[in-house]
């Protein structure tokens, strides 16, 4: 039996209409998605240019770059002899981040491996939630932990005069960058095809041998990216290190020295400067430097990840 001609014509028209609507809907959704993507890029550039704009007049108008990078004399509000030597701040950032990575890399990758390879089902989910909770702790709270808990512990343990040190900040930053390392690291391990594990196990490798001899080399790039993203996270962190590292503009010689990082300096001083003053602008130069560091670190991580996908 066939439909009467009128009815079938109507049906056909409706189908065409529906197809057109569907197409229109798709176009709108596509446009929205593209807009989101583009605006993310626009925002990043806008922020960078805003920071750079505030920095430029000083950067090309009187800042002694040799002093900026080579001197540790940071006297931004001295009336007679202002000096903007950021070396101590840069080294402070490097010291805290570096030591943080010494703790965070074994901790982060050490957690990614058991979560990805040695746990299943509920246990795996539970472990992942714990790690994600770690990421949800606000950085002020970490700062408090540094001030109230780590500070006395460090004083007791090392018989140090003060516990607000590179070590304190590094421990906090390590804990703060562990979550991203774990989740990216776990992704990297998960991306290793199961056939490799099976092949190795079929040759009599234990699960640990599989990890050491097959997964770590196979996931090397992904794990490296995990570490780099952790570094990026640590370099940019402000509040916790501001509270936990003792606020001393000195070049650190050991983990028990107090320091001040780039981020802490900006956060502490920006509120007190007059808009447009040299001091105000030099803080934006620091911001530009920070931006450049995190940009390079993240870009490297991204390139590494991409290289690893292509393979």
């Amino acid at each position: 039996m066939t439909n009467p001609p009128g009815a079938s014509g109507r049906l056909a028209k409706r189908a065409v209409l529906r197809a057109r609507l569907g197409r229109a809907q798709e176009l709108v959704i596509e446009a929205v998605i593209r807009l989101c993507g583009v605006s993310a890029v626009v925002f990043v550039f806008a922020i960078f240019f805003f920071v750079l704009r505030e920095a430029l007049p000083l950067l090309f108008g009187g800042l002694d770059l040799g002093q900026f990078f080579g001197s540790m004399e940071w006297y931004p509000d001295s009336l007679s002899n202002r000096r903007y030597g950021a070396l101590a701040l840069i080294l402070g950032t490097l010291a805290v981040t570096g030591l943080a990575m010494v703790f965070a890399i074994p901790l982060g990758l050490g957690a990614a491996i058991p979560i990805s390879e040695f746990s299943r089902g509920r246990t795996k989910e539970a472990l992942k939630i714990v790690v994600e909770l770690l990421a949800a702790i606000p950085s002020v709270v970490w700062g408090f932990i540094g001030l109230m808990i780590l500070n006395p512990v460090i004083i007791d343990l090392f018989d140090a005069p003060i516990g607000l040190t590179v070590l304190n900040g590094a421990i906090l930053l390590a804990l703060m960058s562990v979550p991203i390392m774990v989740s990216i690291g776990e992704d990297a391990l998960k991306a290793v095809p199961d056939t490799y594990r099976e092949a190795a196990e079929a040759m009599g490798a234990t699960r640990w041998q599989v990890v050491r001899r097959v997964l770590l080399p196979a996931a090397r790039n992904g794990l490296l990216a995990a570490v780099l993203l952790g570094v990026g996270r640590a370099v940019g962190e402000t509040m916790a290190v501001l509270m936990a590292t003792g606020h001393a503009v000195t070049i650190p010689t050991g983990p028990l020295d107090s320091v001040r990082t780039i981020t802490a300096t900006i956060a502490a001083e920006l509120g007190e400067t007059a808009r447009g003053s040299d001091h105000y602008r030099v803080l934006f130069v620091l911001g530009t430097l920070l931006f450049a560091i995190t940009f390079v670190v993240n870009l490297t991580a991204d390139l590494v990840i991409r290289g690893f996908r292509r393979r």
Binding site: T195, Y196, E198, A199, V214, P217, A218
Partner: peptide, 11 residues
């Protein structure tokens, strides 16, 4: 064991 899909290790 030799598998259906060749599966040399990524080494």
């Amino acid at each position: 064991m030799v598998f259906q899909r060749p599966n040399p290790l990524p080494l």
